[in-house]
């Protein structure tokens, strides 16, 4: 369990407004008020690191000033042009003080963000948190597709091809990003890329077969996960923006 970090006082946040703070860990945290609730997110835009407090906030939707990415302030989910969710914190209020705590990476993952809380909690129970040193190979081409992975911290790179005929195939670096999706698919028994931690990394591992069983017991959530999975795959292989 991560510890609470102090951010500010309730009275620092304008009604239906936003304010950002640099907390003790050096992270920039954006705090927003909407109705009687407070929400906290990483204060830098997941697109290009622009300071989100300089953006537009109408009390419900936050818009980054640089490229107009938008998010629902109550969930951090992307709206319109935005391609990534905001990285959220759990907010705890004690008296007039606002504290934040790191959120579980699975609960932040776009793949699982729309499903029921009870199914989310069952999946969290199934995860195993593991730490890897830089250079660790998580899986190689042709390995069995057993687990899918959710990044908590660090950085993972992918490589296609064999021997000296390899090419880089992208990388992930944001908390809540999911990879090794093939573990959720039937008839996809082997890995098609190599995954390597290129920094010290913390990951949540989730067995694909067990996850599918949980999702099968909650078909509405299962449908949402598979729909989100199709969206994620499409984003990797097709152009995402109309010109």
């Amino acid at each position: 369990m991560s510890k609470n970090m102090h951010v500010c006082k309730l009275s620092d946040i304008p009604v239906h407004g936003i304010m950002d703070f640099v907390i003790g860990s050096g992270e920039r945290v954006l705090v927003a008020n909407f109705r009687d609730k407070y929400y906290a997110y990483n204060g830098n835009c997941p697109h290009q690191g622009t300071c989100l407090a300089e953006g537009f906030f109408d009390g419900a939707v936050l818009t980054c000033s640089k490229h107009l990415w938008q998010w629902d302030i109550t969930t951090g989910k992307p709206i319109g042009l935005a391609e990534s969710p905001l990285e959220g914190y759990k907010v705890e209020i004690e008296g007039d003080e606002i504290y934040v705590r790191q959120a579980n990476a699975l609960k932040m993952a776009e793949l699982f963000s729309d499903i029921s809380t009870s199914t989310q909690d069952r999946l969290v129970q199934l995860t195993r948190r593991e730490e890897y040193e830089s250079g660790s190979v998580l899986y190689d081409l042709g390995d069995t597709t057993d687990d899918l992975y959710i990044l908590e911290s660090g950085r993972v790179e992918f490589e296609l091809g064999r021997d000296d005929r390899t090419s880089a195939a992208g990388f992930i670096l944001r908390k809540g990003e999911v990879f090794g999706w093939a573990a959720l698919l039937e008839q996809q028994p082997v890995r098609i890329a190599k995954a390597v931690c290129v920094e010290k990394s913390a990951l949540l591992r989730l067995n694909g077969e067990e996850a599918v069983k949980v999702l099968a017991s909650d078909p509405a959530s299962g449908y949402l996960v598979m729909r989100q999975l199709a969206t994620l795959i499409t984003r990797h292989f097709t152009s995402s923006s109309e010109k």
Partner: peptide, 11 residues
């Protein structure tokens, strides 16, 4: 010049 992007690399 190899450009590594989030989704793939370009040579």
């Amino acid at each position: 010049i190899q450009v590594n992007a989030r989704n793939r690399a370009y040579a």
